[in-house]
Amino acid sequence: MISALDTYLGWDRPGHNKGCKRPHWDVAVRRDEHAARHHGYGDEPLKHSCPDPYCVHGNSFTKLTVRIVCTSCGAAQLVTGEHTADTGDTTTSTTALSFGLPPRQAAGLLLWPAQPWLDFGRAASDEPHDFVVTRTKVKQVTADVVVGQITQGRGRQRGVIWAACAVPDAEGEFGFGQQLRWVHANDGRGGGGSPLRTITAAARWIGARLAEQETGGGQ
């Protein structure tokens, strides 16, 4: 994750076949110990040697397969991967992932909980999430409905502040390398506007930038 936006954007959803009458996914995970490495089907298993005594990439590996099937329309997808110290599967919750939690409303906008980029110690804090911002009545976060982003930081005296970005634009000055770029940004400390010491203040700042855009005053 490199930004709060990655909680919602950049994910592909499995698709049902046309005319599916009862869309429903049956999801299961399989672990195959000692799966052999191959160049391709029918080839001899790869021989792996490595001088690193801690290398886990042996001639065999633990293979993970996620099977996703709709029993109504017959659509199916298999996702395979290798279980290592860095990759595999994790049992967690929506609270830790942020995705799946309901949005909160502030300043006439919806704030969708998002996994923070810098999350050390955040889980035990009063505000464990960053936020992706949309207008009200949005049911699902997609790139075309996002209007802002709110992320927690620290001020000069180590107090909590909230940085905010508003008005997505492909040529925006801020957010280079993220899922979206932005026309406006406030670092929460006063750079880009007034200091933002609460989530509500950050939401109001985003709302003001959106209002400027609508009236032409933000250009």
Rank of each mutant, 00 (worst) to 15 (best):
M1V: 10
Y8T: 09
W11Q: 07
R13E: 15
P14N: 12
H16R: 06
K18A: 14
K21G: 15
K21W: 02
K21R: 15
W25E: 08
V29D: 06
V29N: 01
R30T: 15
R30N: 13
H34S: 10
H38R: 13
Y41F: 11
H48T: 15
S49M: 07
H57Y: 13
N59L: 00
S60G: 02
F61G: 09
K63Y: 08
T65W: 01
T65K: 05
V66M: 14
V66Q: 12
T71R: 15
T71F: 06
C73H: 10
G74D: 11
Q77H: 13
Q77S: 11
V79G: 01
T80C: 11
T84G: 11
A85I: 03
A85V: 07
T87V: 04
T87K: 05
D89G: 05
T92Y: 02
T94K: 12
L97M: 12
S98H: 09
S98E: 07
P102I: 08
P103Q: 12
R104H: 11
R104F: 10
L109C: 06
L110V: 03
L110D: 11
W112P: 06
A114P: 05
L118Y: 12
F120K: 11
R122P: 01
A123I: 13
A124R: 09
S125Q: 04
D126S: 15
E127L: 10
D130Q: 06
D130C: 08
D130P: 08
F131G: 00
V133K: 04
V133R: 05
T134I: 07
T136F: 00
T136C: 12
V138D: 03
V138M: 00
Q140Y: 06
V146K: 01
V147T: 06
T151R: 05
T151Y: 05
Q152G: 14
G155F: 01
G155R: 01
G155Q: 02
Q157G: 00
P168I: 07
D169A: 01
D169I: 00
A170N: 10
G175V: 10
F176K: 14
W182A: 07
V183N: 00
H184Y: 06
H184R: 12
N186R: 08
N186G: 11
N186F: 10
D187T: 02
G188M: 03
G191M: 09
G191Q: 14
T198D: 10
T198P: 12
I199K: 01
A203T: 04
W205F: 03
I206G: 03
I206M: 05
G207V: 05
G207Q: 01
R209L: 01
Q213A: 15
G217H: 13
Q219W: 01
